[in-house]
């Protein structure tokens, strides 16, 4: 035997799955929604997306170099964070907004905790909430869909919040993304395509998104504007960032519970918080805050939703 033999602990086989593969798969699944966003809101959104992604990757690399750690910008996780942050921005934002947001997301949302896998809160949402708190004007100025002259218009959820009646958009229109909103959240069809891909590939499971969306639907139906059981649940499901959040952000591995039982609790929690904020809170939309709050609760959910060990009751 010429070589020295390699000795390691069992098992000696591996499925071949890797973290970076998963990250890039999620990126791929988000491509249709991005394309739809650009088609609906114009090239502005493309620049915002690119700036978000590039600055997230640069921020990650720079911070890792600065702290003398292994540079892992190719693993797709910073790319994904930047992408999700950009998807959560209004289409017409000043060019520096995605840059600042991405940097904050990576630095404060992720690297201060120790990098990938160590953070408590979803970094993209941390970035978004930071931008919301700092520059609310830019973060709430939405443009009309399919009208590239950048005429501002409020989102349907915001109109409802202000007690106004919004111009009638059919459910089909909402489904296809014909409304004001953030770049990546409007086209439900594109989002569902990506989500289906992730579900079929097994990268996400149904537990969080289904329970999340179902809870929002049920809650908004029960507590309708004209009394109990009069709500327009479909309107609430199709509007805001619910679909984007439920399939692509609440399912973030790092910040969601480990077991299926825990994920169901997590999904219901996200749904309740989202509905409560939308119906009675100060903001028209509550997906970001709901997910962030449940992120904070994930460790304690994990504690009480462990799997049953074989041979125990």
């Amino acid at each position: 035997m010429k070589n020295r033999l390699i000795v390691s602990v069992s098992p000696h086989l591996h499925k071949g799955e890797s973290t970076s593969r998963i990250m890039w798969m999620v990126v791929i699944s988000l491509v249709p929604a991005g394309i739809a966003g650009v088609v609906i809101f114009g090239l502005n959104s493309l620049w915002a997306i690119m700036l978000g992604v590039i600055s997230a990757v640069i921020a990650e690399g720079a911070l890792q170099a600065l702290t003398r750690r292994k540079i892992t910008i190719l693993d797709g996780s910073a790319f994904l964070t930047g992408l999700l942050l950009a998807y959560n921005l209004p289409p017409k934002v000043p060019f520096w907004l995605p840059v600042v947001g991405s940097f904050f997301a990576i630095a404060i949302g992720k690297q201060v905790f120790g990098g990938l896998g160590q953070n408590i809160f979803n970094p993209a949402l941390v970035g978004r909430v930071f931008l919301m708190a700092s520059w609310p004007k830019y973060m709430t100025e939405f443009t009309k869909p399919l009208n590239y002259d950048a005429i501002t218009s409020a989102t349907p959820l915001a109109l409802i919040k202000e007690g106004k009646v919004f111009e009638n958009i059919s459910y089909l229109g909402l489904f296809l993304g014909k409304r004001g909103g953030c770049i990546g959240e409007v086209c439900i069809l594109a989002l569902l395509l990506g989500a289906l891909f992730l579900l079929l590939k097994g990268y996400i499971s149904w537990h969080i998104p289904v329970t999340y969306i179902f809870t929002v639907g049920l809650f908004t139906y029960i507590f309708g504007p004209k009394g109990l059981f009069s709500g327009d649940w479909l309107f609430h499901v199709l509007n805001g960032g619910l679909i984007l959040g439920a399939f692509f952000m609440a399912t973030d591995y790092v910040t969601s519970p480990l077991t299926w039982k825990g994920q169901i609790v997590f999904g219901i929690g996200c749904g309740l918080l989202t509905a409560i904020i939308r119906l009675w809170g100060g903001y028209p939309e509550g997906v970001s805050y709901a997910i962030l709050m449940m992120n904070g609760a994930a460790p304690i959910i994990d504690r009480y939703t462990r799997n049953r060990i074989y041979g125990t009751k």
Binding site: I6, G117, V254
Partner: peptide, 27 residues
Amino acid sequence: FVIRQEEFCIRCGACVRECPAGLMPCL
């Protein structure tokens, strides 16, 4: 056989789902 570099746990929960004994291997 390829030598694989160990990375940070991303809490994907795959080990928890597959464990036939119902344990939490990552934790």
